[in-house]
């Protein structure tokens, strides 16, 4: 006989787990960021802001997210439309599309590093084609935009599939009749997508965007592999302060900034893609 307490009892292990391994470290980090010898202080944030690489790290992180996430969204939507139109082989194509998901971000960075480095595939190919005679240094500190582009490529290659999977699942939830009704009432393919599919996809789009944007702000390993320290990003600097400079307080301040940006964007998405009451599928 299940009692009223049973659901709570069943939720207890997960709740304890999250409290111990998430909430506890989180409060610890927050405390680190705001505490000094004389109690609560903002001095670590001052140290962070005054650090000469901070503006570049903030700018690069935001720019990367702004460049990567919309592109990924558009690509994931386009791919999802194509995939859901298929009658045969749909699953196979989905599996292939999602292969990069199984690769860690560091591995992804290394793969693209192997392409772009001085003795890499890109130079070999260009040399074989006779375009260049000596290897080009693509990822040097003089050409930051190439590093930026390489990171973009690596991110898009690796992490678009997670959006695709969420969006394909979301599209599967939209009854076929809505598209047919739109078709009968005069909507062409683009209008059907724009005026029916896209609005009905809001919940999935919201999930996909939140997930992807948060991960974009945490970009680290690809940047490390492709740019070393030539393209500073917030996560890289957090790592740098924690382990190279052994300053846990300032590292915690960086972490808090990343968290704040993530929360900010999550709230923005929740608001922009809100489904009014009674307007869900």
């Amino acid at each position: 006989m299940p009692s009223r307490g049973l659901p709570y009892l069943l939720l207890l292990p997960a709740t304890v787990f999250l409290a111990v391994f998430f909430l506890y470290p989180f409060t610890q980090i927050a405390w680190e960021a705001f505490s000094g010898p004389g109690g609560v202080t903002l001095s670590h944030f001052a140290t962070m802001v005054n650090y000469w690489k901070f503006p570049a790290a903030l700018e690069n992180t935001l720019l990367l997210a702004v460049a990567v996430v919309p592109l990924q969204t558009a690509m994931a939507l386009a791919m999802a439309v194509l995939v859901s139109k298929l009658e045969k082989g749909r699953d196979l194509i989905l599996y292939i599309f999602t292969i990069p998901l199984g690769i860690s971000d560091l591995a992804a960075g290394l793969i693209w590093f192997a392409i772009f480095q001085q003795t890499g595939f890109l130079n070999s190919a260009l040399h074989a084609l006779g375009v260049v005679h000596t290897p080009v240094i693509w990822l040097g500190y003089q050409s930051k935009w190439v590093i930026f582009l390489a990171v973009m490529l690596a991110e898009i290659w690796r992490a678009t599939a997670i959006m695709l999977v969420i969006i394909v699942a979301g599209m599967g939830l939209i009854p076929k009749e809505y598209g047919e009704a739109a078709e009968v009432f005069g909507a062409g393919p683009w209008q059907r997508f724009r005026r029916v599919t896209l609005p009905l996809l809001r919940p999935s789009l919201q999930t996909a965007l939140i997930l992807r944007t948060i991960l974009a702000f945490e970009v680290f390993a690809e940047v490390a592999a492709l740019g070393g320290t030539n393209l500073p990003v917030l996560m890289g600097e957090t790592f740098h302060w924690q382990f190279d400079l052994q300053d846990g307080h300032t590292a915690a301040a960086f972490a808090i900034v990343i968290l704040a940006i993530s929360i900010g964007f999550t709230l923005l998405y929740l608001r922009l893609l809100r489904v009014p009451k009674g307007a869900g599928i």
Binding site: E177, Y178, E180, A181, V184, V196, L200, A279, G280, I281
Partner: peptide, 13 residues
């Protein structure tokens, strides 16, 4: 014009 069995009244409008 058509009336569908499950109405297909767009939920988002």
């Amino acid at each position: 014009a058509m009336v569908f069995q499950n109405y297909a009244v767009f939920p988002h409008l």
